[in-house]
Design a protein around this nucleic acid. Structure first.
Length: 931
RNA sequence: GCCCAGAUGGCGGAAUUGGUAGACGCGCUAGACUCAAAAUCUGGUUUUCGCAAGGGAGUGCAGGUUCGAUUCCUGUUCUGGGCACCA
């Protein structure tokens, strides 16, 4: 009997489905374990072999945990809202619901093909009204909440109103505008409009303004992705920034907790570091500079180096800064206007990464340095961003390279406050040494001067110490169709949540979910609003207009892990019993590209839901496993320029050639199938070949991203059809460590396939059939299997699954050479294999005489006594170079070992009669003689 | 530009805590079985000098620490990911 993987895999897939083997209950006496994959966006291209890498790893882990006695939640779903589906709709007129449905079905088939143990009964898709109802619901909770800095938690906005009615905002500074100051009476005297305006400045989901890419020619707002080299990707039209009213999430209030929470997480240090840098906490000071010509106007700068205030030679404002208009002198007005026009065409990335080109513009005004009383010029420049700090800096050219380049370029005189350490050529950026030429700070160590400077600033009443975060509030509006509609209606321009208005007054669509309406066209509205603005029946309600933006992609993905816990619940986003049972995700597997987006937003949503009392934990993902990418391995043919002749790899330099991607399926290793190549595309039908001496055509190779256009995409379905899902799963793991990128090479899969066939032959003989016997294993066999049990268990715990596959190979090679067919060895081996090659393991398990799924077996324990060796073959080195291997019992006294080593002829030869200076003996490791 | 990773044979990779560099597999190669092929099995395979025994070099590059460095430190080059509206 051969290893007939097709029959076996089909049989067990049907068995699992029929017996609901992977259906998970929220009630179990077993301890819980939650294993989650980052859910996919179902693109039209389907899955390629790179996508399932992480899914296979987490599937192995989930199955392992189940064998270890846990009740394992391992769900999958789809992040189904997004730009590509909408783009496709614009191009083809097909409704995103339809194309998304098709794509999801395709993904589902491809995933099922690989034999994952997902509980599909729990599947979610973010574009389902039954799902986005709760995305909208959470948005409303954020809208109805504010962040209490005193208790460091979110609270209902109703409680804020109660406080305002008594004390005003005396103890609750406004996060959006610290100038706002009111007492209880003052609050009560405000109009509803004024009150709501102030409340908006406290809400966790709030309306503000942000710059978006506007493309006049396309009449639409573009995503960063759709802007390439300063023009629209579609059509190449000019784009510019336009300020629009947008929803935001006040994630900045959570900055400190997001930072602190990292300490409790089992994530890689690199991942935590990226989040820390993104949050970007910096400690410094805000300093107020009064404008010389208009003493009622002041510019507040944020600096991390208040100690350098004596070296401040000019101020730089972001070109968008609200004071620019006020301070620009008539003489400079046209230059300032022109410069601001230019900046509107620049992306933030370009603005901050530009190093060669220094640009800026003088406003004509001067500001008074509040400590030195010296007037200094006020400039605007693109390297200062409106959204960071106060949108204004004090430039210290002798202490900051950026400022230094600027001063040199515009011939602004530089004050040296570092003496000889400032070269005049480059700024002195180090925070060591003493300050000079700095008034009362002269001669003071920089480390001490920072605090002294802040004290002086506070004393002078011109500023204060300040902690600043690079983190910005998260833009939450998209001028798009394919996303969650907002449950918001504008009544005379004021935003109301639908639950603040009576059902009657809004008319239809007055309760959650606010359904995404059908549209005629996916083109944006003329105003720059999204396509929803075109549906006047939907937009207009008896009380006012609905919000026409939709929510961004990360809305649905910020909380989906909670929905899996209780996916059918139609009166809560997830029942408290369910969330209390499953709690946070124990292991989350996904790519590092989500390091700061999705992973930060999910953390914030979790904290907000925790604060508001809806869940009992405040971090969503306890342990994070990063998964690398599988790259494509492209193949090239070389066409002689201007002809239809193709020259083989080794001769390509003999003539002028064009390198052309050739479909990898037409190539076996490097060998081109010439016949199929001719049939591939009409223009190659009459191709002629200039071949190697042996008549073969050898292709060129490059490792690139897997993509359709490079003809290097490998579909898992094809691999599964040819080798089986079990081989595919093990091969993906065998390729290398989970977290690094590596190229796909179909050729290599045969080794893994051979291994599974070899393993099969331990159990089944081609002629005799089932050959497992009941003999007792000997010491060697016990050592092999117990070593394997140990290694596989440790590897899975550490997610080093590539070495597990190696260990399986070693184990099978050894058992084969021992001709071991003993049930007591092969039964535990089948269980070890179950997470990796589940179909095959089930088949073996059944034939071993079991009537239930192998998933209900227990992972075997190893016994140290079968593994331990009592002697060690020591490498013996002289001066670090290994000269001989000598075997000694592990319990042999050190002195005796040394004696034996010294009297060994090879060692004596290397010692040349000299006595070694030192003998290093590391028990169980090595011996080194130093001469 | 900034932040975070990575670099080891012809290829994917192993070396878990500073202790035999190249496990395991691919590829290549020699052989067994076969009329032949497939499948399977056995041996060889970092490189260099050498008939061999044996020696030299070697983990991107340049230094350093150490009895000993793929592993730690400093600098540097290249590649990948992210940089706030791709998901």
């Amino acid at each position: 009997m051969e290893y007939t993987f097709r029959t076996i895999e089909k049989k067990w897939k049907e068995y699992w489905k029929e017996h609901r083997t992977f259906s998970v209950s929220n009630h179990s006496p077993k301890p819980k374990y939650y294993v989650l994959d980052m859910f996919p966006y179902p693109s039209g291209a389907g899955l390629h072999v790179g996508h399932p890498l992480g899914y296979i790893a987490s599937d192995i882990f989930a199955r392992y945990k189940r064998l270890k006695g846990f009740n394992v939640l391992h769900p999958m779903g789809f992040d189904a809202f997004g730009l590509p589906a909408e783009q496709y709709a614009i191009e083809t007129g097909q409704h995103p619901i339809k194309t998304t449905e098709q794509n999801i079905n395709r993904y589902r088939e491809q995933l099922d093909n690989i034999g994952f143990c997902y509980d599909w009964e729990r599947a979610v898709r973010t574009s389902d009204p039954s799902y986005y109802k709760w995305t909208q619901w959470i948005f409303l909770k954020l809208f109805h909440s504010w962040y209490d800095r005193n208790t460091q938690k979110a609270r209902p906005i109703a409680e804020l109103i109660s406080i305002f009615e008594i004390d005003g905002n005396a103890n609750i500074p406004c996060p959006a505008d610290e100038q706002i100051c009111l007492d209880g009476n003052c609050w009560k005297g405000l109009s509803v409009e004024e009150q709501r305006d102030i409340l908006m400045k406290y809400r966790l989901a709030y309306l503000g303004f942000a710059d978006v890419w506007w493309c006049e020619a396309l009449g639409t707002v573009l995503a960063n992705d759709e802007v390439v080299n300063g023009v629209s990707e579609r059509g190449g039209f000019p784009v510019e920034k336009r300020r629009m009213r947008q929803w935001f999430l006040r994630i900045t209030e959570y900055a400190e907790r997001l930072l602190d929470g990292l300490e409790t997480l089992d994530w890689t240090e690199a991942m935590k570091e990226m989040q820390r840098n993104w949050i970007g906490k910096s400690i410094g000071a805000e300093i107020k500079f009064v404008v010389e010509q208009a003493s009622d106007k002041a510019i507040t700068v944020f600096t991390t180096r208040p100690d350098t205030i004596f070296g401040a030679d000019f101020l730089v404002l972001a070109p968008e800064h609200s004071l620019v208009d006020d301070i620009t002198t008539p003489a400079q007005q046209s230059e300032v206007n022109a410069y601001r026009e230019y900046v509107r065409t620049r992306s933030e990335r370009e603005r901050i990464s530009e190093v060669k080109l220094v640009s800026g513009c003088f406003t004509g005004s001067f500001a008074i340095n509040p400590i030195t009383q010296r007037p200094i010029p006020i400039w605007i420049a693109e390297y200062v961003l409106a959204g960071y700090g106060t949108g204004a800096i004090m430039a210290v050219p002798s202490g900051d390279q950026r400022d230094h380049l600027f001063a040199k370029h515009f011939n602004i005189p530089i004050t040296n406050i570092f003496g000889a350490r400032y070269s005049g050529e480059e700024a002195y950026m180090a925070k060591e040494g003493t300050l000079e030429n700095s008034g009362f700070l002269s001669g003071i160590e920089i480390s001490k001067a920072v605090k002294m400077a802040v004290d002086a600033i506070v004393e002078a009443g011109v500023g204060q110490g300040k902690v600043n975060y690079r983190l910005r509030d998260a833009g939450f509006s998209r001028q798009r169709y394919w996303g969650e509609p907002f449950p918001i209606v504008y009544k005379e321009g004021i935003a109301f949540a639908i639950d603040e208005l009576s059902n009657h007054s809004i008319g239809e669509q007055s309760t959650l979910p606010i359904l995404l309406p059908e549209v005629e066209s996916y083109q944006p509205a003329s105003s720059g609003e999204g396509p929803l603005a075109n549906i006047s029946d939907w937009v207009n309600t008896p009380v006012g207009q609905r919000e026409t933006s939709t929510m961004p992609g990360y809305a649905g993905s910020s909380w989906y892990f909670l929905r899996y816990m209780d996916p059918q619940n139609d009166h809560e986003f997830a029942g408290r019993k369910a969330t209390d049972y499953w709690r946070e995700v124990d292991v989350y597997v996904g790519g590092t590209e989500h390091a700061v987006g999705h992973l930060l937003y999910s953390r914030m949503w979790t904290k907000a839901l925790y604060d508001l009392g809806f869940i009992s934990f405040q971090e969503p993902f306890k342990k994070l496993i990063n998964q690398g990418m599988i790259q494509g391995s492209s193949r090239f043919v070389y066409r002689v320029h201007g002809t239809n002749q193709f020259v083989t790899y080794s001769r390509r330099n003999e003539m002028q050639v064009d390198e052309i991607h050739v479909d990898v399926s037409l190539v076996d290793g490097l060998l081109l199938d010439q016949k199929r190549f001719k049939a591939w595309r009409p223009e190659f039908a009459n191709a002629e070949f200039l071949l190697e001496d042996d008549g073969s055509y050898i292709c060129g190779v490059a490792v690139e991203k897997m993509s359709k256009s490079k003809y290097n995409v490998v579909n898992p379905d094809d691999i599964v059809a040819q080798y089986g899902a079990d081989t595919f799963r093990m091969y993906e793991m065998f390729l290398g460590p989970i977290d690094v990128s590596k190229p796909w090479d179909t050729k290599g899969i045969e080794g893994v396939h051979r291994f599974l066939k070899k393993l099969w032959r331990l159990y089944v003989d081609e002629q005799k059939g089932w050959i497992v016997n009941q003999e007792l294993p000997n010491a060697q066999e016990l050592q092999v299997i117990h070593r394997t049990i140990k290694k596989i268990g440790e590897d899975i715990e550490r997610f080093t699954l590539n070495t597990s596959v190696s260990q399986f190979m070693i184990c099978v090679n050894e058992l084969a050479s021992l001709t071991c067919h003993k049930q007591r060895v092969l039964e535990p081996l089948a269980i070890l294999l179950a997470p990796f090659a589940p179909h095959l393991a089930e088949e073996l398990w059944q034939q071993l005489g079991h009537s239930t799924s192998i998933m209900d077996a227990s992972f075997p324990d190893y016994e140290e006594k079968y593994i331990t060796e009592n002697s060690k073959k020591y490498p013996v080195a002289v001066n670090g170079k290994t000269r001989v291997e000598l075997e000694f019992p592990l319990d042999m006294p050190e002195e005796m070992v040394k004696q034996a080593v010294l009297s060994h002829p090879i060692i004596m030869k290397w010692l040349e009669g000299k006595a070694p200076k030192k003998i290093i003996f590391v028990k169980g490791k090595m011996i080194n003689l130093v001469v």
